[in-house]
Amino acid sequence: MRYYSIKDLEQLSGIKSHTLRVWEQRYNLLAPKRTETNIRYYENEDLKLILNVALLNDNGYKISKIARMSSDEIKKEVLTLTDKSLTYGDQIHALIISMVELDEERFEKIISTNILRMGFEMTMLQIICPFFSKIGILWQTGNIHPGQEHFVSNLVRQKLIVAIDGQIYSGGGKKFLLFLPQGELHEISLLFSCYLLKSHGHKVLYLGQDTPDEDVNAVSEIHRPDYLLTVVTSSPAAEHVQRYLNSLSERFPASRILISGYQVLSQDLKIPSNMKVMQRLEDIKDYLTTLTNVA
C-alpha cells in the first residue's frame, strides 16, 4: 500500500498543509494514522478524498458543507462538476483523480470529451501536457507511484500514436531526427513533438525510447537531418547531463539540436551554440512557425 505525508497531499491537491490540519481538527475530514514515532501518514483513500474535496472547494463549495457529505456524495458531485466545467485547471485536477484511482474509463472520457470540444492539439497543450508536467515533478520526487504514471502514460500514448498515424507526409519541410537518450523511457513529450512536426508538414525520423548513441549516429549519417530533437527527463542523471549535451553538440555540429526535459530545465547548464532549450511544448510549436519551406 502507498503511504503519503501531509506534504505529499499538499503537492498533489494544492491545499496547504496548515489548511489540511485545520480541516482535520475542525471538521474531522481526515483521520491520519501515525507511525511508532508519532509521525502522521495518509493512505490512498485519504488522498482520493482530499483530491475530490480540493476540486469542490476550488469551485466554491464551502468546506463545512463538504464535511457533511458522504464519500459517495462527494465523488458524485465531483463527477457532475467536471462533466460541466470547461476550465483547464478543473480538467487537469480530474485527470489526477482518475490517475490516483486508476480509473481508465473516467480518464478516457475526460480526454475524449476535450478532444471533441477543442481538438487534439489544444487538448494536449492546455490539459494533457500541463498534467504530465505536474505529475512528472511528483514522480521525480517520489510523490506518486511509478505504476500510476505508467497507467496514464500508456493511455495517452495510444491516443498520440493514432493521431500521428493520421498525419500524411507529402514532401517538403525540414528533416527532424527524434530520439530519447539511452535509459530514457518517458516518451509522451517526444511523441507529441512528432505529431506537431508532422502536422506542420515536416519529415520525421522517429527512433523512440532508450536509443543508443551509435544508433543515433548511424541514422544521422545516412539521412543528414536538419534538426535533432530529444528530451531528458530522468536519464542521463543530473550530474551527467552537461557532459551529454556537450557530446551531442560535438557529434552533430551541422545539425540544430532542440532539447528539453526535467534534467535540462532544472539545472543551470552551459548550452552549446548549436543547441536550443525548449522550456515548454508550446515553444516547439512556436519555433515551427519560424521555419521556412514548409509543405
Rank of each mutant, 00 (worst) to 15 (best):
Y3L: 13
S5C: 08
I6R: 07
D8Y: 04
E10F: 03
L12M: 13
L12H: 05
L12P: 03
L12Q: 09
G14I: 14
G14C: 06
K16Y: 03
H18V: 13
T19C: 04
L20T: 03
V22M: 05
L30H: 01
A31R: 09
P32D: 08
P32H: 05
K33S: 10
K33M: 10
R34K: 12
R34E: 06
R34Y: 14
Y41N: 07
Y42M: 02
N44P: 01
D46G: 08
I50F: 11
V53I: 06
L55W: 05
L56V: 01
Y61T: 02
K65W: 02
S70C: 04
S71N: 14
D72L: 13
D72Q: 08
K76D: 14
V78Y: 08
L86S: 05
G89I: 14
Q91P: 01
I92V: 09
H93K: 14
I97H: 00
S98Q: 05
E101P: 04
E108F: 07
I115A: 07
M118W: 02
T123Q: 06
M124D: 03
I128E: 06
K134L: 15
K134E: 13
K134N: 15
L138G: 00
L138F: 12
I144D: 00
G147I: 15
E149P: 02
F151G: 10
S153V: 06
S153D: 09
V156T: 08
Q158M: 13
Q158D: 13
Q158G: 11
Q158I: 15
Q158L: 15
K159L: 05
K159R: 10
L160S: 00
V162N: 02
A163F: 11
S170E: 12
G171Q: 11
G173V: 09
K174L: 04
K175F: 04
K175E: 05
L177W: 01
E184L: 12
L185Q: 06
H186G: 12
E187A: 03
I188C: 05
F192T: 05
C194L: 02
C194D: 09
L197M: 09
Y206I: 01
Y206M: 07
L207W: 00
L207F: 07
Q209S: 10
E214C: 07
D215F: 10
D215W: 08
V219C: 04
I222C: 02
I222E: 08
H223G: 04
Y227D: 05
Y227I: 08
L228M: 05
L229S: 13
T230F: 02
V232K: 01
P236Q: 09
P236S: 11
A238M: 06
V241H: 02
Y244W: 07
Y244D: 05
L245N: 06
L245R: 00
L245H: 03
N246M: 07
N246C: 02
S247Q: 14
S247W: 15
S249G: 03
S249N: 01
E250S: 14
R251V: 02
P253H: 10
P253I: 11
A254R: 08
R256K: 13
I257N: 01
G261S: 08
V264M: 03
S266R: 04
L269D: 04
K276E: 15
K276R: 10
M278H: 06
L281H: 09
E282P: 00
D286E: 12
L291Y: 12
L291W: 13
L291V: 15
V294Y: 00
